[in-house]
Design a protein around this nucleic acid. Structure first.
Length: 236
DNA sequence: CCTACTTTTCCTGTTT
DNA sequence: GAAACAGGAAAAGTAG
């Protein structure tokens, strides 16, 4: 009900860099589409090989530049003076602070950064078999409800992969484009490989009662309700 | 441990 | 016929 605006990690990140599941596992083999993987260059870059906490001021600056190019963000809406900081400081910025410093772009930047940190964490976990739980706590990364997961995916151009798509950005109407893929992603988040769209959608339907979602008569189309927050474009 | 709340699982029936 | 949608019920998971 009154969750703070804890933004979760996007999914454990699967497809960027070291996939936990193969594409075919994740999206099925019988699919007719092919991944539009023009988002991938995050891979193998400095940004994912060195934990953001260790970035220098210069690195942070470069990262902003990189994001603008890569994700087509308008550099003009970024107040670079707010980002004259090192990686450690960057990591401790809240989503609100990102928004203050760069508006909508800030929101994306925040998500991109969270994403990188999550990847890092996951990789470390895989190698060492368990990382200090501190890191995952520092940004409320572990807590995500289904609707927040969906919201974050919608706000995350680099993770989305066309699984979800805005139908009407202003009204918060969106469409599930690849239902089973979404279910797999959610399942991976919850470490539940038995998740299906059938079951996920049941959970979504419960949101109608609580006003997190509003009913839309079209198949695979949902709308954020009055009790959902954090999806609007200009509002924090 | 208890409670409240969310999500998962399963199911039967309906609609597209 | 295949996918989705609808909800009821109950079990399981989680936060506090």
């Amino acid at each position: 009900m009154l969750d703070s605006i804890t933004h979760s990690t996007f999914l454990p990140n699967t497809m960027v860099c070291e996939p936990l599941m193969s594409w075919t596992e994740l999206f099925g083999t019988t699919e007719d589409y092919y991944p539009s993987f023009d988002h991938q260059p995050v891979c193998n870059s400095f940004w994912t090989s060195v934990h953001p906490e260790h970035w220098s001021k210069h690195d942070v600056c470069e990262w902003l530049q990189f994001c603008c190019d890569q994700y087509k963000l308008d550099a003009n809406c970024i107040s670079f003076s707010h980002f004259n900081i090192n990686g450690f400081q960057l990591c401790s910025m809240t989503q609100e602070e990102f928004t203050d410093a760069a508006g909508v772009c800030g929101e994306y930047l925040y998500f991109i950064l969270q994403n990188i940190m999550t990847n890092d964490n996951d990789k470390a976990c895989l190698r060492t078999g368990g990382m200090k739980s501190q890191e995952s706590h520092s940004h409320g990364l572990q807590s995500s409800h289904l609707w927040e997961f969906v919201r974050d995916l919608l706000l995350s151009p680099e993770e989305n992969c066309g699984v979800l798509e805005w139908e009407d950005r202003e009204q918060g109407i969106f469409r599930v484009v690849k239902s089973e893929a979404l279910a797999k992603m959610w399942g991976q988040r919850k470490r539940n490989d038995r998740m299906t769209y059938e079951k996920l959608s049941r959970a979504l339907r419960y949101y109608y009662k609580t006003g997190i979602l509003e009913r839309i008569d079209r198949r695979l189309v949902y709308k954020f309700g009055k009790n959902a927050h954090g999806w609007q474009e200009n509002k924090l």
